[in-house]
Design a protein around this nucleic acid. Structure first.
Length: 648
RNA sequence: GCCAGUGUAGCUCAGUUGGCCAGAGCAGCUGAUUUGUAAUCAGCUGGUCGGGGGUUCGAAUCCCUCCACUGGCUCCA
């Protein structure tokens, strides 16, 4: 039979050769390195015989598809260890995920806790040493059903129900056999760096009405070194955790008494947030946005009109009532209904469009208690919200302008790696969306074209659009490679309809405007959390709470230090003096830990020369400079929004 | 909301199987020291051991319940 390789080369092999046979004929080294093969575009076990002319591509650890296969096999290995430790348990599914794998298991009456993970890891290592092959076996549906009936595993039986006879396969390694479509790596011995990371409950089939299964998460690598590197990465992520840094840098706090998910911004955090807000506000005003301010509550009828009452009323904070009339008000869960009323406050002409209403609006949403997390998931937060009311043919241009704004924001803050996810309608079922077909087509086309013209890296997802319109979300990758969803731009056909928004067109007739929601940051809280983790708490000069710490070597130089301080302050530089009677080493250490970017050290020499000794956080001594020079340097960094060099 | 876990001083953490007035380091305060590029020394203050209830002669330790937090699940206008 003919085998075609990725470079186009075609070679002859005996019919029934396996991918491994073929690899071995090329080189033993290759055969050792590969984990799976892509045969005619489908990932196959290396040991599966190839019967016809095919194209083949060998997959190594560097391929995402090989990683998935590796982790899928690792899930089976873990299942074997679990079955060994808890005989009689039942398995649901064990897929690979972005970084590792999990398996959902019904442990029966057994309870497992984090301390058991180490034992399971140990068992997995043992099973890996046995180097058992993953053996694929095609099996009839009747036999498969019989096997799991005997085992009493209703979960696998449920899976089997949805499968066609003739397409069913089992995989066995060692003492563990599982219903599985595969593919798998050749044997368990390849799995060397093993770490079970956490335990969680997960509803069967993700439905909270179903029984909760135990989910065990893990990650594995082909060698110990890569596992060690991954563990270092986890440590680094822990160091950057915004909850930890937020406390250390005195940015924000929480109080049980105030309530869960309700952040309290401390002076340093509040000022940082304000600088960020002013930065965006300024850019928005330059881009033609008009600031508006709306109250924190709105009457029930507002949300009945918007449709949110019907959809989310029960899941929201319950209404507050006026004491006499009993009129109901809701805490506002979003700003758009208020903004729609502003739109309606006067008759609009096509000449007024696009109308861009912007507000840093604080909203309140009842998030389930288990869902709260630091600043990234809270019950009260401030959106950098704006609503653009425009004509359908203006959508594309507005998108382009918003993309410009978002990229300006990202670039100013050192986020250089981002992609745009475009969410469109489900092509097969257009009935679940509101708005006319023509408008959807215009909008979807506008978004795609706008992204293209702006040169965005994009991913298109069908069926991910909201019922009220398509959207574009920005995903950024932070300094240590993690993905976050930040800014969003969404088209909305629903609210203009519900609020009966209109404008008078050139033809002197009423028309319906399109509404676009957009938020470059997403929310101030979430954005600051991501920014903090991105820069590891070392904020750029223009944002950092304290820019300069003046460190006199002894009390004798305090008056000169005061003098320097007032010069800095006169130039709007945020500076403080460490006037404790500590040794200079201690003052430097404390300042380094507090991540203040610049230290000015003042001793006898500096006083005599009328200069300051400059030390940069994380870098060290930068020599003696004139105070004016330092001021100019800081002003330059602020003006150009220079990014601090993040040292790990 | 659900599963698993955690909750001891402002912070980080010790507190054997329930048993002497609950400990340490850092921070804070007071004093001494007047210091040259990542921790000067001494003393002192500070905790109804997350809240409430129970078991017990006796509870930080065991049980119940509520709250908060952590990791997930579900949800996300």
């Amino acid at each position: 039979m003919n085998i075609t390789f990725p470079d186009g080369a075609v070679r002859q092999y005996e019919q029934g050769s396996t991918a491994l046979d073929i690899a071995k004929k090329i080189s033993e080294g290759l055969a050792r390195k590969i984990l799976a093969a892509e045969v005619n575009g489908e990932v196959w076990d290396l040991s599966r015989p190839i019967k016809n002319d095919s194209s083949i591509k060998f997959l190594t650890w560097d391929d995402e598809k090989a990683k998935s296969t590796f982790w899928h096999s690792s899930a089976h290995l873990m299942a074997e260890a679990v079955e060994d430790a808890f005989p009689g348990v039942k398995f649901w599914v064990g897929p690979p995920i972005e970084k590792g794998f999990y398996y959902d298991i019904d442990l029966g009456d057994n309870v497992i806790s984090e301390s058991d993970l180490e034992k399971l890891e140990k068992k997995m290592n043992e099973l890996s040493k046995q180097n058992n092959s993953f053996v694929r076996k095609e099996i009839s549906k009747a036999d498969a059903v019989k096997y799991f009936e005997e085992k009493g595993d209703e979960y696998k039986l449920d899976l089997l129900q949805g499968l066609e006879d003739g397409s069913i396969t089992f995989y066995t390694q060692g003492n563990f056999t599982d219903l599985c479509r595969g593919p798998h790596i050749p044997s368990t011995g390849l799995i060397k760096g093993i770490k079970l990371t956490s335990i969680a409950g997960a509803y069967w089939k993700g439905d909270e009405k179903n029984k909760m299964l135990t989910r065990i998460y893990g990650v594995t690598f082909p060698n110990q070194k890569e596992l060690d590197e991954y563990l270092v990465f986890l440590e680094e992520a822990k160091k950057r955790d915004h909850r930890k840094l937020g406390k250390e840098l005195e940015l924000f706090t929480f109080s049980e008494k105030v309530g869960a998910g309700l952040p309290l911004w401390l002076p340093k955090g509040a000022m940082l947030r304000e600088r960020l807000q002013n930065f965006l506000q300024k850019a928005q005003i330059e881009s033609g946005y008009l600031p508006v301010i709306t109250p924190h509550i709105g009457s029930k009828s507002l949300y009945v009109t918007s449709g949110h009452y019907e959809k989310y009323g029960k899941d929201s904070f319950q209404p507050i009532k006026t004491p006499v009339e009993g009129e109901e008000f809701f805490l506002k869960p979003m700003n758009c209904p208020h903004h729609c009323e502003i739109y309606k406050a006067s008759p609009r002409s096509y000449k007024d469009l696009p109308l861009r209403l912007a507000e840093f609006g604080t909203v309140y949403r009842y998030e389930q208690s288990g869902e709260l997390h630091g600043l990234t998931r809270v019950r009260g937060f401030t959106q950098d919200d704006a609503h653009l009311f425009c004509m359908p043919n203006q959508v594309k241009d507005e998108f382009k302008k918003v993309i410009d704004l978002v990229l300006y924001v990202f670039n100013s803050l050192g986020f250089t790696d981002y992609t745009a996810q475009i969410s469109l309608r489900d092509q097969n079922d257009k009935s679940k969306y509101i708005g006319s077909d023509t408008n959807w087509e215009i909008a979807e086309k506008s978004i795609i074209e706008a992204s293209e013209e702006k040169g965005l890296k994009t991913v298109i997802e069908f069926g991910e659009a909201a019922f009220y319109g398509p959207k574009l979300d920005f995903m950024v990758r932070d300094a240590i490679g993690r993905k976050w969803q930040l800014g969003t731009i969404q088209v909305d056909y629903n609210l203009p309809e519900r609020f009966d928004l209109t404008y008078i067109g050139e033809d002197n007739a009423k028309h319906r405007p399109v509404m676009i929601h957009r938020a470059p940051f997403g929310s101030m809280e979430r954005f600051i959390a991501v920014l903090t983790e991105h820069c590891a708490g070392k904020f750029p000069m223009w944002l950092v709470p304290v820019q300069v710490k003046i460190l006199p070597i002894s009390d004798k130089f305090l008056s000169y230090a005061q003098n320097v301080l007032s010069k800095l302050k006169n130039n709007d530089i945020r500076a403080e003096i460490d006037d404790r009677s500590e040794k200079i080493g201690k003052k430097i250490r404390d300042t380094e830990l507090s991540k203040v970017p610049l230290m000015l050290i003042i001793g006898e020499k500096e006083v005599n020369d009328k200069k300051v000794s400059v030390r940069r956080q994380g870098k060290g001594d930068e020599g003696v400079k004139d105070v004016q020079e330092v001021i100019a340097m800081i002003q330059d960094e602020v003006k150009h929004k220079k990014i601090a060099e993040t040292t790990a």
